[in-house]
Design a protein around this nucleic acid. Structure first.
Lengths: 180, 180
DNA sequence: GCTACCATGTAACAGGTTACATGATTAG
DNA sequence: CTAATCATGTAACCTGTTACATGGTAGC
C-alpha cells in the first residue's frame, strides 16, 4: 500500500486535487514511487472510502475538480505505516538479466540495451543535480531537511552507480574479441 | 517478458525441470529477477505453447517430473530480446517513501524500518561476497566470465550503497533532537 | 460553434503474490 | 500404514499499465 501512503504524504505537505497530485508526483515523490493519474484517482477514492481523506469540489475552478485533504485518521495511519517495517522487495532488473543472457547467446547485440540505460541514468542524474543545486544550497539544515536531502543523495548515488556499471559493461563488450 | 527470457537463459545454461529451475533461481538469476514456483510453471507452459522449449517426462524419476529444453526458436528469441532495448522501469522503493513521510509526521518511528533494511542488505552482501570468493578467484577471465562478474559486482555495489544510506539515515534519526 | 485542452473516470489486461490442492514417492 | 516431502498445478487477488471515454471550460 505504498501508493496510498505516498499520496497521504504529498497531501499533508499540501492539500490539492488529483491532477495536481499527478503533476507534483512527476517531480518529487514519483522519482521513487511513480504513479499514473489513473492509479492516483483510483487510490484517492479508496482513501476517501477508508475515511483517511476528505474531498470537496473546488468552488472557483472549472469542471469537476476536487481538492483532497488528509483527516486525523489518515495522519495516524501514515505514522503507523512509517513505524511498520516490511521485508524489502527484491531487485528486479531487466538489464542484468540481459547481460546474463548475453553471456550465453553472445554479447554483440547487448550494446544498444546498455547504451539506452546509460543515457537514461545520465539524464536522471542531471535532474537530481539540478534539484540539489536549487533546494539544498544552505548549511545547518533541520533534521527534516537532512532526511529529505538523504533521499535526494540516494537518487544521485544510485544513478552514479549505474552509470559506472553501464560504462564498464560497454568496455567489456567492446574489448577486442581476441580477449575471449 | 523478462521472466520468460530469464528462464530461457537458465535452461540454455542447463536443461532441467520446473522445480530444479525454481531452486536454481533462488541462488543465481533470481537475485535480480526473483520468481516463485507458480510463476515458473505458468511461464514454462507458455514457453512450450510458443514453441520455444520442449519438455518430456523424466523416465527414471518419480512423479510427474518433466525436463525442459530450449529449441532453436527459443534461442533466437532470446538473442532478439537481448538486442532490443527497453525503457528502464522506474525505481520503486518503499523505504525512501517512508523517509519522506517521516519528514512530515515525525521520524521517531522510522528507526525500525531502516534497521530492517540494513540487516537485509548486510545479509545479502555476505551472500554475494561468498559467491565472489568461490567462483571468481582466478585471473584473465573470458569475456563471458567478465560479464557474469560484472553482474555480481553490480549486486555487491548496490548492497554496499544501501548499507551506507541506511547507516546515514540512522545517524540523522539518532542525532540529538536539539539539532532540529 | 469548432477545436483544443483539462480533470476525471472506465475497462481490459499483464504480472506478481498468496493460499491452497493434488498425486505420487519416500522414510519410519 | 502413516506421515512427511516433492513436483506440479489451480484460484483469487492486488498492483500497475494501456487505451479509451466523458464532461466541461477556454480560445479563436
Amino acid at each position: 500500500m505504498s501508493l496510498a501512503h505516498a499520496l497521504l504524504t504529498a497531501l499533508l505537505e499540501r492539500p490539492c486535487s488529483g491532477s495536481e497530485l499527478a503533476a507534483r508526483f512527476d517531480r518529487s515523490i514519483g522519482f521513487f514511487w511513480p504513479a499514473t493519474h489513473q492509479q492516483i484517482y483510483r487510490e484517492l477514492g479508496r482513501l476517501e472510502e477508508a475515511g483517511w481523506v476528505t474531498s470537496r469540489p473546488v468552488a472557483d475552478a472549472p469542471g469537476r475538480k476536487r481538492e483532497y485533504e488528509v483527516l486525523d485518521g489518515g495522519r495516524a495511519e501514515l505514522r503507523r505505516w512509517v513505524g511498520t517495517p516490511r521485508e524489502p522487495k527484491a531487485i528486479r532488473d531487466e538489464l542484468l538479466v540481459k547481460v546474463r543472457a548475453a553471456a550465453v547467446v553472445g554479447d554483440a547485440e547487448l550494446l544498444a540495451s546498455v547504451r539506452l540505460r546509460l543515457d537514461r541514468h545520465r539524464a536522471r542524474l542531471s535532474v537530481y543535480e539540478a534539484i540539489e543545486a536549487r533546494d539544498f544550497a544552505d548549511g545547518d539544515p533541520s533534521r527534516e531537511d537532512r532526511l529529505r536531502r538523504l533521499i535526494l543523495n540516494a537518487g544521485i548515488d544510485l544513478e552514479a552507480l549505474w552509470i559506472r556499471l553501464c560504462t564498464e559493461a560497454i568496455e567489456i563488450i567492446e574489448s577486442d574479441a581476441a580477449d575471449s
